[in-house]
Design a protein around this nucleic acid. Structure first.
Lengths: 136, 136
DNA sequence: GCATTATCCTAGTAAATCGATAGGAATTGA
DNA sequence: TCAATTCCTATCGATTTACTAGGATAATGC
């Protein structure tokens, strides 16, 4: 299940991508437009900034803005930041790999086999979708 | 993230599918073979039985067995039973649809658009994969 | 400089979900 | 009757989720 954090984060990014110019947009503006709790959105934008997706400016006329062009922001980056692993199970994750306690042999595991297929497909979608694709 | 419930459920089903004959297998046998807590597995097999995937027999020589041939059990059924929705967000779910509170127009929603694509792909995999495919 | 307007940062918290566990009732076979 | 097994309900600690609170910090404009 996609968390609200990720959902709101994507919506905010799309909102920023749709702006004509890359000038700072205040949290309050985005939160009102997208019906997101302002304080919650604040924490989400903060992590996006800390991880190089957004830039920010403090004080009057401040706010958040995209650091790159929307076409250069793949959804893999956004998903991994906000949601965590793209795989449904750690033993098939590229970036968050972990061995299963109960499983003696991954190659013989049916769950591994199935979830690997799912991950491959999902990954392909997120890799081939950028913020630009979502904001048209 | 795939829950342990689903993971264990799939493993148990694969174990049963691999049996030569459709005779009852005890919970304790499966739990030992697959390294699953017996009590937890018990509750999982119970829901699989209550939903027409497994049959059971009580008393000595009792246990659980598949009610259908592995090739006739698609992963969609198993996933929906144990994990719930296949979609990552309710607004693109076929069997567990729910409208988003914050979203005035689904068709204009970027998250909806993206997650619909993911669901389509994942669904295709689960539909085309049966228990038989996993137990070879 | 000082007030205002914003982000920055750390904590906390209520509710839900997860991953079990406990304990006994019901049923079956020998 | 007894032992083996599933059936069923209830509970529980830990973790995660979706926020909220409250102030620190920085930039702007007068």
């Amino acid at each position: 299940m996609l968390s609200k954090k990720t959902k709101y984060g994507i919506k905010a990014l799309v909102y920023l991508a749709k702006q004509e110019e890359r000038i700072p947009v205040q949290i309050s503006v985005i939160s009102k437009s997208e019906n997101i709790s302002q304080k919650f959105l604040e924490s989400i934008l903060l992590t996006l900034r800390k991880n190089g997706i957004l830039g920010s400016k403090k004080g009057k006329g401040g706010g958040y803005y995209l650091l790159k062009e929307p076409k250069d922001i793949p959804m893999t980056a956004v998903m991994r930041l906000l949601e965590g692993p793209i795989a449904m199970i750690p033993c098939v994750s590229l970036n968050f790999y972990e061995k299963c306690d109960d499983c003696p042999d991954e190659n013989a595991c049916a769950v591994n086999k199935l979830m690997l297929k799912v991950r491959d497909n999902t990954l392909k979608i997120f890799r081939n979708t950028t913020l630009a694709d979502l904001s048209n």
